[in-house]
């Protein structure tokens, strides 16, 4: 036992010391983005947009304020994710931002992100999604292990504790998935390449963009929001049983009898004197056919 521990220590210690720190690995993971050339014109556009839409809270040098966090050194991936998903500019400070149509075009978003990243170097650059050789099967497996516990296995999203929400994954882009996984926005954990390798992340992107958003997913009918058996139960009870009960109402006799069971009641207003006051609009002709 002691020997085994000693062996383990010998085996693991040099490996750990030899590894670069996770953040350095993350920072050097991807640095290329083909969408916008890294020119001074693009940076100037980013600066203008930043000054117009971001600086009032995050400060002119992205240094943050009492209203908003410091963005210096965060890298362009974080900024790109928050702006492209419409989380920023924030509609309502104090609550978790909800996905909405972005205020900016992709190139504008990228320009803002580059401008902020250019202020202080560091952080993660906007990743380039490469799905060549990606396996949706592997992605499904990684997704079930790492993403489904909050976002649900169907990607419908769900409420976590204290008002925090794991948002739905419908309509997200591959770039946003990679940015979110690597930067960990809000309460979401950041997954380093130790947890989810570059290849596994590409697999997840492949699975989510093709199957969670269902362009390739086989059917079976209306999906009821993908929120599981409670929605199915309501449909089973109200559509299924409800429809059957309506059929019973249609086939069966709707005569409301029972007048005799209320002695002392109900004879005040009606002069007919009969015990059967019920409407019998669809009662079949009840001719007794034999003597």
């Amino acid at each position: 036992m002691v020997l085994a521990l000693a062996l383990a220590a010998v085996f693991y210690a040099p490996r750990h010391s030899a590894q670069p720190s996770p953040s350095r690995r993350l920072g050097s993971a991807v640095l290329v983005d083909a969408r916008v050339p890294n020119t001074s014109a693009a940076l100037a556009q980013g600066r203008t947009l930043y000054d117009e839409s971001c600086s009032s809270c995050h400060g002119t040098q992205a240094q943050g304020s009492s209203l908003a966090p410091n963005l210096r050194g965060l890298g362009s991936a974080t900024v790109d994710l928050w702006v492209s998903s419409g989380w920023m500019p924030l509609a309502n400070p104090g609550v978790q931002p909800a996905r909405k149509p972005s205020h900016f075009t992709p190139s504008q978003t990228s320009a803002i992100a580059r401008y902020v990243a250019s202020l202080v170097p560091g952080g993660l650059a906007i990743p380039t999604v490469d799905l060549k050789g990606a396996s949706s099967a592997e992605g499904f497996s990684v997704f079930a292990l790492n993403c489904a516990p909050c976002h649900t296995i169907t990607g419908a999203g769900d409420a976590l504790s204290n008002g925090i929400v794991a948002p739905p994954l419908h309509g997200v882009t591959g770039t946003q998935i990679e940015e979110a996984v690597r930067t960990g926005p809000g309460n979401m954990p950041r997954f380093s390449t130790f947890t989810v390798s570059k290849q596994q992340l590409a697999d997840v992107v492949d699975y989510v963009t093709r199957y969670v958003e269902h362009p390739d997913s086989p059917g079976g009918g209306l999906t009821l929001g993908g929120v599981g058996p409670v929605a199915e139960g309501f449909v089973g009870l109200f559509a299924g049983v409800g429809l059957c009960v309506l059929i019973a109402l249609w086939i069966g006799d709707r005569n409301e009898s029972g007048g005799e069971s209320e002695p002392g009641h109900g004879d005040g207003g009606h002069g007919d004197g009969g015990h059967d006051e019920g409407p019998r609009a669809e009662t079949p002709e009840r001719e007794v056919a034999h003597a």
């Binding site: 649900t152 296995i153 169907t154 769900d158 449909v235």
Partner: peptide
Amino acid sequence: VQINPIWQYGQYYAYKVSYAVQ
């Protein structure tokens, strides 16, 4: 109406879990 789309859920493993399970 789709019910219990198990192909989206995948095989059960004790170490895997989804949220929104009832």
